[in-house]
Design a protein around this nucleic acid. Structure first.
Lengths: 147, 147
DNA sequence: CTTCAATTCTTGAATATTCAATATTTTCAA
DNA sequence: TTGAAAATATTGAATATTCAAGAATTGAAG
C-alpha cells in the first residue's frame, strides 16, 4: 500500500519539473505571437507595467518583470534606443531612476496586448475556462505560500 | 456586469506570468538546496533521467531536461570532465551518441534526490497536500492540451 | 547502386546573462 | 554635523546560451 519512495520517482512527477515544463511551453507560444512585432516577452512585460503611466524605479521594475538588475538595465538600454521608454531621475531620491513609457511604447504595447489576449483565448479554448481559473488560483496561492 | 477587457488587465493576472513567477520561485528554492553539492538543477535532471541505467541519446535527453541541443552538449562536456556521465556511440545508428551515468554520478544523484525530496516536503508542509496534487494534475493536463 | 534529402550531434561566433566591483546618493547613529 | 552603513543603479569581465553552419551517418527514391 505504501507509496513508492520519492527518491525513485521520475523527474516528470516533481512539481519543479512540471512548472518548468508548463512555463516553457506557454512561454514558447507567447514568444511566437509576440515575435510578429519582434519583441521579446520581457519587453512586453516592461511596457505593460509602465503603461499605468506612473514612473517606476529600476528596482521595482526588476521585481515586477522577473529580471535581475543588470539584465534589466541592459534591456532598458535597448528599449531607450528604440524610444519605447525613457529615464527620468527621481527628484525625491536621486539614487533612483524612474522609467516611463513613451507614446511609441504605448502604441506598441496595445498591439502586443492583443496578441497576448489571442493566446489566452486559445488556452481557454483548448484547456477550458474552469481549469484555467483554478490553475491561476492555485499558482497564486503557491506563490503566496513561498514568501 | 461585464468583465474588464483583458487588454487592460495587469500582467500579474496572465497565466504566462503566474507560471513564470511560480517557476522562478520554486526553482530558486531548489537551486539553493542543490548548491550544497555545487550542482545546477539541469545537471540533477540529467542524472535523474540517466539513472534508469539505459542509454539515452542527446536528442532524447534534450527533450527530457528542457534544454536545447547545443546547450546540452556543452553541459554534458562539463559532466564528462567531472566523470559523472560518459558517451558511447550508438552501435545501431552511428549518428547518435548514447549517454550513460557513471558510478560517481549515481552516488551524487542519490544525494541530490534527497535534497530535492526535502524541498518537496517543505512545499507539502507550507502549501498543503491537497493543493499540491491538484496543482500537479492541472499542470499535467495543461501540458497535455498544449500538444 | 548512387545520389540527395533528412537526422543527429557538435562547433564557433554572436548575443545575452550573471557576478563582483564601482559610483552615487541617502539614512542614521554618534 | 559628520562619517559609516545601506540602498540604488550601472559597468565590465567572466560565463552561459543561442543561432547558424558544419560534419557524419542514415534513409529512400530513382
Amino acid at each position: 500500500m505504501a507509496k513508492p519512495p520519492k527518491e525513485n520517482s521520475p523527474i516528470t512527477e516533481h512539481l519543479a519539473y512540471l512548472l518548468a515544463q508548463a512555463n516553457r511551453e506557454i512561454n514558447r507560444q507567447l514568444e511566437l505571437r509576440l515575435s510578429k512585432e519582434g519583441v521579446p516577452v520581457e519587453q512586453w512585460r516592461i511596457l505593460k507595467v509602465l503603461s499605468d503611466g506612473n514612473g517606476h524605479s529600476m528596482g521595482e521594475l526588476a521585481d515586477a518583470v522577473l529580471l535581475n538588475h543588470p539584465t534589466l538595465t541592459k534591456m532598458i538600454d535597448r528599449m531607450v534606443s528604440d524610444t519605447l521608454v525613457y529615464r527620468v531621475q527621481d527628484p525625491n531620491d536621486r539614487r533612483k531612476v524612474l522609467m516611463f513609457i513613451s507614446d511609441r511604447g504605448k502604441v506598441l504595447c496595445k498591439k502586443l496586448n492583443s496578441l497576448a489576449v489571442d493566446q489566452e483565448e486559445h488556452i481557454l479554448e483548448s484547456y477550458g475556462d474552469k481549469s484555467t481559473s483554478e490553475l491561476k488560483r492555485l499558482l497564486e496561492s503557491l506563490i503566496d505560500s513561498s514568501n
